[in-house]
Design a protein around this nucleic acid. Structure first.
Length: 428
RNA sequence: GUGAGUGUAGCUCAAGGGCAGAGCACUGGACUGUGGCUCCAGGGGUUGGGGGUUCGAAACCCCUCACUCACCCCA
């Protein structure tokens, strides 16, 4: 006996009745995005690996150690997508969806793949829903999309959430800050952990995120990005803050909030919740003004976010706002009491389905008891049976399993059977 | 990649060196073509896997694998 093959680590089956719930959560979130005018786009699950190293950044953890890359038979290098923004931008450029002169709003959803150690709220195949707005953006567009996520927090009663906000500067002032920071870090190099010494050279902003106590001490007095913003970025940040306040959306400034993807500029934000365990972020995003051009497209600013569906699930579960479980799957179970009645039973099932009555046959052991049991397990509303007498008379007994009421029909009058069943089910 | 905790029936868990058990679920019977309740019976296990200590290991030791949580990272 060989051992059974199991699902890969960090990859989960979503079994009934959770599958329906999962789809409902997705749908309800999509509906909120649709309220914001976002149009759905369906994107492939794998792309050229280069797309992600160019957009997310070669020195990021996602690209450096978490990506599922593989080469196909032609020898080209591909990667399972670790996030959605890069794919969406690629598609927008490829199909000329975006234009420097107009605003487009696109949303996507689906599985993402990262080779991480699984943990509460963290999987190797997980699901994200996200939205991106591309075009001649103003700071108000940042605020508007954040407000849409805020709407989700309210609609789903996300427990104890916080909006963390930062501005990472523009392509003009970020390099200046970067220099300042590198200079500072070099001065304190001996107090930094090994990773941070490495990052000082390849991706100094990531050092700000380090939680090692020795690094924390150094970072206490490190220069803040918000202190070295250029006038335009300062104004951008100021406007975003002012308009969030105007909408009554509370936020917390977090000058160490550095998203782990290199493409972000200006506004970055993260919605967190302490109801979620260590993986506290449930939605995050920011502005990426240089990404489109970086990927070979026109110079079009962008702003976007992604939310983790599994994390939304956990939060809504805590809040008691999970979608209700679905209606019973079966309306009718058909049971032939004797083998000779099987053809009639099969025919009846088929006819009922043609009349949009969810039906299934039970062709198991000849015991009527087991038919009742199966019907009950399926939450079937009616049980029809055909035995010796019915077969001879060309009839069928149909029993309402809730009321116990039983009616005899001619096998021919299917539309009347279907109609009676429908009325009973829909009026219950 | 690092650390800690946990692996016993389909599920939830007992037994802490001396017969591997309970509840739920499943199957059958009481009840022959009319269910849910009740009662009775039954099937299910290399105690995650491998090695060691011991007269004897689910239990103690070592290795390994898996799961969970945390670090890290992020949605």
């Amino acid at each position: 006996m060989s051992s059974p093959i199991r699902a890969p680590r960090g990859v989960k089956d979503i079994i009934p009745p959770d599958a329906i719930r999962f789809e409902k959560i997705l749908k309800e979130t999509e509906e909120i995005l649709a309220l914001g005018g976002f149009q759905k786009i369906l994107l492939p699950l794998f792309e050229s690996a280069a797309l992600f190293s160019r957009s997310i950044g070669g020195a990021t953890d996602i690209v450096e150690k978490e990506m599922y890359t593989f080469s196909d038979k032609g020898g080209d290098l591909f990667a399972l997508r670790p996030e959605g923004t890069a794919s969406l931008l690629r598609a927008a450029i490829e199909h000329r969806l975006a234009d420097p002169g107009k605003i487009v709003r696109l949303s996507y959803a689906g599985p993402m793949f990262r080779h991480e150690r699984p943990q509460a709220g963290r999987l190797r195949q997980f699901h994200q829903i996200g939205a991106e707005i591309l075009g001649p953006l103003t700071p108000s567009d940042d605020v508007d999309l954040i407000a849409l996520i805020h709407r989700m927090a309210e609609a789903f009663s996300i427990p104890s959430w916080t909006l963390l906000l930062n501005n990472m500067g523009c392509p003009a002032c970020r390099p200046v800050y970067r220099e300042t920071l590198v200079g500072y870090l070099k001065q304190h190099e001996k107090d930094l952990c090994e990773t941070c010494r490495h990052r000082t050279d390849v991706n100094p902003l990531r050092v700000l995120d380090c939680k090692t106590p020795s690094c924390q001490a150094v970072l206490e007095t490190a220069p803040k990005i918000t202190d070295s913003l250029c006038d335009r970025s300062r104004a951008h940040f100021g406007q975003v803050r002012e308009e969030l306040e105007g909408l009554g959306i509370p936020y917390t400034l977090s000058h160490r909030l550095v998203r782990g993807l290199d493409y972000y500029t200006e506004t970055t934000f993260e919605f967190v919740s302490d109801a979620l365990g260590a993986q506290s972020t449930w939605a995050a995003g920011g502005r990426y003004d240089g990404l489109c051009q970086e990927l070979g497209g026109p110079d079009i600013p962008g702003f976007g976010f992604a939310a983790g569906i599994e994390r939304l699930w956990l939060l809504r579960e805590k809040a008691g706002t999970l979608p209700v479980s679905p209606s019973p799957p079966l309306w009718l179970t058909v049971f032939p009491l004797i083998p000779e009645a099987r053809p009639s039973a099969l025919r009846l099932v088929r006819q009922m389905r043609n009349l949009s009555v969810p039906s299934a046959g039970f062709f198991g052991s000849g015991k009527i008891k087991s038919a009742f049991r199966q019907a009950e397990r399926d939450a079937s509303r009616f049980l029809a049976f055909i035995g010796e007498d019915e077969l001879a008379a060309g009839t069928v007994q149909v029993k309402n399993l809730e009321t116990g009421e039983q009616t005899s029909y001619a096998l021919k009058e299917c539309s009347r059977i279907a109609e009676d069943i429908r009325n009973a089910v829909l009026s219950a």
